[in-house]
Amino acid sequence: MQQHFADTDRKPLNAGDIAVGDPLTPMDIDLTPTIVAATAIATRDFMPVHHDKDYALSQFAPDIFLNILSTNGFVSRFLTDWAGPRAWVKNINIRLGVPAVPHQTLRFTGEVLDKAEAGDKVEVTVSVIAANDSGNHASGSAILVLPRD
């Protein structure tokens, strides 16, 4: 029996449900060493700084830290957790800041900046910030493509 973890009851948003200024549903990730290592390996990034604390300390890092593919992976999840299963993530544009380290919460927030017609779809531009106790880990914007209604 194939185990299924997909959230098949998830409700989709359409562009008509969204207004400029709307907040995105915040997403908190309580980062653990296991999450940092598991996501790095899932992205096929074997750099020791993402799973080996001794190595990370030898490189003057405070601990192991999230790799950038995983930052983008969590941004993608943050966007579609909010926008639902009809949304297509078209663009993620981030500036990178402090490292995302274990034992801190990485909190994703954002708001709708713009809506623009694009053929029979609508492009929704949102701001994205992922921050922990030390400041912004990533900040920027993203574009989602959604059905009109």
Binding site: P12, I41, P85
Partner: peptide, 28 residues
Amino acid sequence: AFDDRNPVYEDTASAKQHGWGARIAPPA
């Protein structure tokens, strides 16, 4: 690893229901 439960990545029926021809890979 990401605890990403968007059903269109794993469930073909959900993917079709939401306008995708087939289940899709996470974009990132």
